[in-house]
Amino acid sequence: MKNRAWLTFAVGLLAALGGGWFAVPWAMYRRSEQPVQFSHRVHTSEAVGLSCQDCHALSDGGKFGGIPRLETCAPCHAEPQGKSADEKRFINEYVAKNREVQWLVYARQPENVYFSHAPHIRLAGLKCEQCHGQHGTTDRLRTFERNRISTYPRDVEGYSLVRLQPSRWNEGMKMDDCSRCHHERGVEESCLTCHK
């Protein structure tokens, strides 16, 4: 009788552990694929020879262009470059119709965050990889995950559930991550440094 009591308790415990560690984190995200597949590796390969800045440029005013618009892609992709189905679709659906691709932005910060690439690139000399990892050498665009409650993209939120590891690019781009880097570099900061 006593055993049964503890057993019931343990079953409940295990069920919750399983749910809390696996089911809930899985169910928490809405997954979607990018509208068009894209290979950063091909574009940065020697054959094409583009650098990050060629498409993700910084204007004189310090404003970061973000994801390139169709006008950046169209000159090279007026004709299909290769035979992939995505390439064909990209030409037919977007370039030909002059329709912007609705890219899902992995690193899109929420509305209340101010972030400028200019001071980080030009003054602090950070490399793209430091925040965006090896994104520039990937062959395909990852599945985009968005937190159903907070609406944050998974890249911003981070992939770890416990967030105990030291700073790594895929630990996320939440406030604590920005703050940690600032503290390591002795950057004086206040709320208004990063909020708008």
């Binding site: 204007s59 004189d60 005013g61 310090g62 404003k63 101010y114 200019a118 030009r122 208004l192 708008k196």
Partner: peptide, 21 residues
């Protein structure tokens, strides 16, 4: 009011783009 802090942020970004602090 925050003295239009976004304008300060823009000014900092503009300066930074030109390598200035």
């Amino acid at each position: 009011c925050n003295f239009c802090h976004s304008r300060w942020q823009a000014a900092v970004a503009k300066a930074a783009a030109n390598g200035k602090r």
